[in-house]
Amino acid sequence: MGTMVHTHDNKSMLSQGILIFIYLAILTALEFFVAITFNSVVLLVVVALVKAALVIYYYMHVYKLNLESEVDDASYDFKAGTNRLGLWLFLISDAFVFAGLMVVRINLLGLSRPELNQTLGLAVTTVLLVSSFFMNRGETLMRNGDRQGFLKNIALTFILGLGFLLGVVLVEWRLAIHEGITPSGSTAGAAFFMMTGMHAFHVFTGLILLAIVWINGRRGLYDVKSYPVEAAAVYWHFVDVVWIFFYPALYLIGTAVH
């Protein structure tokens, strides 16, 4: 990874996106493997942290907060910089909700977890991960000036995101209830529904943002410098980062109890 510094060169950003996706996929597989074999909590935490760091740096371009804009305050770049800071502050704030939910989960369940459908869990996780990949591509293409490619990728992201949402809310919730894991049945059920519910709510708002960006993109409102596209992407990846932690917390760590 030594050569992978952050870059503004569009070509290399595209290939960087692919590379990061591969890393993430490998790490997810590793995570799953660890969980079904020797289930080491420490290792799972480390893997999640590495994944989150990759997404935050390469997909969410956190380094852009540092871009020095000596330029005039009225310029587009300056305003975009202010907006970027605002969005990040919002995400930091939002992260505290999810951290709080994590504390609730750890306090109530400790090293046990609800007995959920592993295949489905891995499937929705993959879908969300792939959606992030397309989101990244879409954003980069827009910066490249390729509007058609941008639209196509955003549409794909949207469809995958919707798939994730429905997979969790329609399929997973139903299966869980069928298995006797209900919101009111036990603390495990309560934690599960609360965490996935809160996350699903964020996915839902993310989908709305994607829809707006897609529609406005089709109308030709964006050009090479379009902060709204970046904002939608950063938000989408943030939702991804949350799932990077929630997935192991709900599906992998500890022993399943009924």
């Binding site: 505290f96 909700v97 709080g100 109530l108 919101p183 009111s184 309560a190 934690a191 609360m194």
Partner: peptide, 22 residues
Amino acid sequence: ATQLIGLSFQLVMFQRLFGMPF
């Protein structure tokens, strides 16, 4: 920090509405 008071109250609200036994 404000998010945490929101969350704590939300959990009680849900306990009341949906019987989630937090």
